[in-house]
């Protein structure tokens, strides 16, 4: 079984994230970056599927991002993935989610995969639409929002969280899966894993290498455009009171003052 795991490098959620004044894109240069948290769960799930299959499955990490996204690739390799593809090109800067899905789908089209696994959302864009976008473009079934994945032969079953409980959904491979953080507990890379990661194959592709049309990606061709943005003043510090035995009434007084009662 061949598994491709998508990982993304994102600004640390604890860091102050900004849009750049000139082109209104995320300032990725001035912040600390990490592997998108939920992607660690995607890598872990791929490793578990490979381990339980015990059939010499191969895990390829695929990332699109600037040069330094290679740090994120190394982490996934250190966790145990076998090889990596890094799509890196200035022309991709400012691509919207739709264009990103086109670029990733184009690269996926050149790889041999039974499962594509990604995290359910990234902490920077928070759209939660990469799995359906890729499924649509690749013409394969979408198994998104999985809190449990079972693979038996060519059939994949997931439990998908819904607003009233969960659905059990089934599809045949090849398929695109996105996972939520309930699914597992990601492992830490071992020292041995970190050393081994340095020797694992890493292919770097430009858009020309990947056959991505330059007029289909990048800020100028984005399908939506940011007209303006404003930083909201931080929430006004509220009123904090200590319970002196009348805490319940104090909160009720506040709710009444705001017309909730």
């Amino acid at each position: 079984m061949n598994i491709v795991v998508l990982v993304k490098q994102v600004p640390d959620t604890w860091a102050e994230r900004k849009l750049q004044d000139d082109d209104k894109t995320l300032d990725r240069a001035s912040v600390d970056v990490v592997m998108n948290e939920i992607d660690e769960y995607a890598v872990e799930e791929a490793l578990r599927i490979k381990e339980s299959a015990g059939d010499g499955s191969e895990i390829t990490v695929l990332t699109m991002g600037p040069d330094r996204a290679v740090e994120t690739i190394r982490k996934a390799l250190a966790m145990g993935a076998d090889k990596a593809v890094h799509l890196s090109d200035e022309a991709l800067h400012g691509s919207c989610a739709l264009q990103t899905s086109y670029a990733l789908a184009t690269v996926l089209g050149t790889l041999d995969y039974d499962l594509v696994i990604c995290g359910s959302e990234s902490t920077d864009a928070r759209l939660s639409i990469m799995a359906p976008l890729l499924a649509e473009r690749l013409g394969v079934p979408q198994l998104s929002g999985a809190r449990k994945v079972t693979v038996s032969d060519k059939t994949v079953r997931i439990e998908r969280q819904t607003e009233s409980g969960y659905d059990v959904i089934e599809a045949a491979t090849p398929t695109v899966i996105s996972v939520v953080e309930k699914i597992n507990e990601p492992r830490y890379p071992s020292f041995k894993g970190i050393m081994a990661a340095k020797k694992k194959p890493l292919t770097t592709l430009t858009i020309a290498d990947a056959g991505i049309a330059p007029d289909q990606v990048g800020l100028a061709a984005a399908t939506s455009s940011v007209e303006s943005f404003s930083t909201r003043p931080p929430r006004q510090a509220g009123q904090i009171v200590k319970d002196e035995g009348d805490g319940g009434s104090r909160v009720a007084d506040f709710l009444a003052s705001q017309k909730f009662l």
Partner: peptide, 13 residues
């Protein structure tokens, strides 16, 4: 960004 920034956007395609 967790409510820190408000963006106004339009669809262009």
């Amino acid at each position: 960004f967790g409510g820190a920034v408000e963006v106004k956007s339009t669809v262009t395609t």
